[in-house]
Simulated scan of single mutants.
Amino acid sequence: MVGDGWASLTALNDEVPDHDHGSTVDNLDHGFQVSKHLECWRKEYVRTRLVHPNQLIDDPDDVDGHMKVESIGETLRAGEPLPAVVLIHQPDERGHPYQLIEGRHRYNAIHREGWPLIFAWVAHVSCCGGPGPDL
């Protein structure tokens, strides 16, 4: 874990702007009843294998996606840091307690490169001491 303090998505976005912020807010609002003001977020390093693999690109015809992932992989190999991906922590029995909300290409690159950890903004809603949904 990077920080023990709770933050809102708005505060994290003010610190490091997310180019897909609007989409992230919509996904959280509609899928999880979480507003951008709920202080349920922490910056964390998460084990990559614990992120649900449903966002791995498996379409060989997704040329643009594969090119983006390769470009990000080059950035990783050069030792450059990446912006955080956005995850929600949802403990489950399948061994993948984190669901990707935003950062699909970064997640794919980190997965392909075999990095054990991924830097993320993680929402803890009704778990780990985090508040319940607020919408």
Rank of each mutant, 00 (worst) to 15 (best):
H89S: 13
R106I: 10
P53A: 10
A123W: 05
T75A: 10
H89A: 14
Y107K: 03
V122N: 01
E102T: 06
D61I: 15
G79K: 04
R112I: 14
E70S: 13
G95E: 10
H96F: 15
G79I: 12
E70H: 07
L100A: 05
C127F: 05
E113C: 14
P81K: 03
R77F: 08
V125Q: 01
H66W: 08
R106T: 10
D92W: 06
M67I: 14
G73Q: 08
A109F: 12
P81N: 09
Q55F: 03
V51H: 00
S71Y: 12
E44F: 02
R49E: 11
V125K: 00
T48H: 01
R42V: 06
A84F: 07
I101H: 00
R42T: 03
A84C: 14
G114I: 15
A123K: 00
L56S: 02
V122S: 05
F119Y: 13
Q99D: 10
G114V: 10
P97R: 08
V86M: 07
Q99Y: 13
L82I: 12
P81H: 06
R42K: 07
I88K: 00
L117T: 08
N54D: 09
L100G: 03
L38D: 01
A123M: 03
Y98E: 02
A109R: 04
A84W: 02
V85P: 00
A78R: 06
